[in-house]
Design a protein around this nucleic acid. Structure first.
Length: 375
DNA sequence: AATTCGGGGCA
DNA sequence: TGCCCAGAATT
């Protein structure tokens, strides 16, 4: 009877040793330089963390400039914790998935209050906002040298092929097998380099559609390749179709000033500044009906009667799960709205405040303000 | 298990 | 156009 400890190991020791040896040796020669990359044992945990947060669902090339500016503005954990959330969103503006920025800020404050630093344990990290299984493992291993598994999209694809783990990557059963495999591959040596080597191989060799097996250091150990299945493992992911969303955007102008509201922290563009907006009904409606509907919603939201005038500009943006149409309308009220979470912004402020790209594009298309006629 | 959340680059 | 990208949180 194969009891606990007698069952065959998920990864035989010899295979694990060969994989680790070859992959780490390859990484030493092939690793790319990034501003957040350090020699093993010399990492700045704060910098590693910022990079991991920015890299979530975001390509490396897009992250680099944001990373540099962010570190200039918030060079340390203390600086980040001391900043306003609004300033952090400003630095994140255009990078997307803004919940990451709010979590980052909250985690900085929480870590400082609870530990006086970033906690150097998987458990401590995983308890902070914005730290899921991947990021906790990545920071634990890369920043603190702890042997922790970190399975991102690259590593999932790589391990699925190496061990011929078929099934959709998003299925819970597949993820569990991948996680167990990643854990079985851990060893005491070079934990940070190990995590980064797996990711690097997935990102530069074991890529999605055209894997470069001829340049892969572990091609000889790859079960998918041996079976000729490297193109069908993993299977293509099916995504839910994009929903169309039409947003009416109200342009209140007072001279050069433009009315902006801070959006609620949950939902689309959470925490960012934007003009008052409201979803418009889908089908084909006359411009008059759209204006009327927008006016009703905005009046309710601002608490004063709003009159909606002519259309000023439009913009289309496609997000992962949503096709956005933004329609800007001229809008006026009899009494000028004021209050917290509301501001009249100068053109310069509109450029520098934390705003979503889609909104920014729309605002750039507004016709220029003509200087008011003299009385 | 399914949805939501951004944005840009590229086959 | 569809798909992907160093995912996490919510429902």
């Amino acid at each position: 009877m194969p009891g606990p400890g007698r069952t065959a190991p998920l990864v035989p020791a010899a295979r694990r040793a060969a994989l680790r040896r070859r992959l780490l040796a390859w990484y030493d020669g092939a690793r790319r330089d990034f501003p957040w990359r350090f020699a093993e044992g010399q990492a700045d945990p704060y910098r590693v963390w910022i990079s991991e947060a920015m890299l979530q669902q975001t390509q490396v090339a897009r992250v680099v400039p944001y990373y540099r500016l962010f570190l200039e503005r918030f060079p340390t954990l203390e600086a980040l914790a001391a900043a306003d959330e609004e300033a952090v969103l400003e630095a994140w503006s255009g990078l997307g998935y803004y919940a990451r920025a709010r979590s980052l800020h909250g985690a900085a404050r929480q870590a400082l209050a609870l530990h006086g630093r970033l906690p150097a344990s998987l458990k401590g990290l995983a308890a902070l906002p914005g730290f899921g299984p991947y990021t906790a493992g990545a920071v634990a291993s890369i920043a603190f040298g702890l042997p922790a598994p970190a399975v991102d999209g690259n590593v999932a694809r790589l391990l699925a092929r190496l061990f011929a783990i078929d099934g959709p990557l998003e299925a819970a059963s597949t993820r569990a097998r991948l996680a167990a495999t990643a854990a079985a591959l851990l060893g005491p040596e070079r934990p940070g380099d190990w995590t980064q080597a797996l990711i690097e191989l997935g990102a530069t060799r074991c890529v999605k559609s055209a894997p470069r097996c001829e340049r892969c250091p572990v091609a000889g150990l790859c079960e998918a390749r041996r079976a000729g299945k490297q193109l069908i493992i993993p299977p293509a992911r099916r995504r839910p179709g994009k929903l169309r969303l039409r947003l009416g955007v109200a342009v209140f102008r007072y001279g050069e000033l433009l009315l902006l509201l801070r959006r609620p922290s949950s939902g689309l563009f959470g925490g960012l500044w934007a003009p008052p907006m409201a979803a418009l009904p889908q089908g084909v409606l006359t411009a008059a009906k759209l204006r009327k509907r927008l006016g009703e919603v905005l009046s309710r939201e601002l608490g004063v009667p709003v009159r909606v005038g002519r259309e000023l500009a439009s913009a289309e943006r496609t997000l992962t799960h949503r096709a956005l149409t933004l329609l800007a309308f001229e809008a006026t009220t009899r009494t000028r709205p004021e209050g917290p979470g509301l501001r009249w912004a100068t053109p310069l402020e509109v450029e520098t405040l934390g705003t979503a790209s889609a909104v920014r594009v729309l605002l750039e298309r507004l016709p220029p303000v003509r200087s008011r006629p003299k009385a």
